[in-house]
Computed example of a mutant assay.
Amino acid sequence: MTRLPVKIKLTGYHSAIYIRIPRSFQGLVNAEYQYGSTKLSDEVRSRVRYSKEEEQMTRLFLGEFDESHFSFETWAGDEVNAKTTHGSLYLSYDDEPEPKGIFSRLWGSVFS
């Protein structure tokens, strides 16, 4: 059975954007930021087949990439479009363990 494409569009202003995609995701990731960056989990990074970084934008393709049959203008598959002004984009798979922040690590070290 063929699944419908995953289409995610998120906008933030003074915030980081955390996106957790399914492992079956195969497609484009477009991230725009004014003061920030794009951060990928190790597992997502291992599936990047195309990467282009410009001044305030990162464009990626995850999964199998056939350049001869691809066009950004006509792409109809999976796609993430995220934009934030003051923050970064964090991308990981939905079945990966959530990374622990500094406060949860400190809290755990105090009470373990």
Rank of each mutant, 00 (worst) to 15 (best):
K52H: 12
Q34G: 01
H14T: 05
E79P: 02
L106G: 02
N30Y: 08
L91Q: 01
R49F: 01
A31G: 00
L4R: 12
S68T: 13
L62Y: 04
K7C: 09
E32H: 07
G87V: 14
H14E: 13
P99C: 06
G87P: 07
T38Q: 05
R20T: 04
S15L: 04
W75Y: 14
I21H: 03
V48R: 09
Y93D: 01
D42S: 12
S104K: 08
V44Y: 01
E73D: 15
V48W: 06
K100R: 12
I17P: 02
T84K: 04
V80P: 02
L4I: 05
F65I: 09
D94H: 04
G27W: 07
D66A: 15
T38M: 13
L28H: 02
L106H: 02
F103P: 01
I21W: 03
L106F: 04
D42G: 08
D94K: 03
L106Y: 00
F25G: 05
E96M: 06
S15D: 14
R105M: 11
W75A: 09
S71K: 11
D66Y: 11
D78K: 06
Y90C: 08
L4N: 14
R47M: 14
R20H: 05
T84Y: 10
F65P: 04
F111G: 00
L62P: 01
R23K: 12
G36M: 08
D66G: 06
L28G: 03
E64F: 13
E55C: 02
K9F: 09
E67D: 13
S104L: 03
L40V: 07
F103H: 08
K9E: 15
Y93V: 04
N81Y: 13
E54N: 08
S71M: 10
W75R: 08
Q34E: 11
E32Y: 09
V44I: 15
V44C: 04
L4A: 14
E73N: 14
N30D: 10
H69C: 15
V48C: 11
E98C: 06
E53V: 01
L40H: 02
R20K: 11
F65E: 13
F111C: 01
A31F: 13
S88H: 06
L89T: 05
L4Y: 08
G63N: 09
M1Y: 11
G27P: 04
Y13E: 10
I102D: 12
G27Y: 05
L62H: 02
F70M: 14
R105L: 15
H86R: 10
E98S: 12
R49G: 12
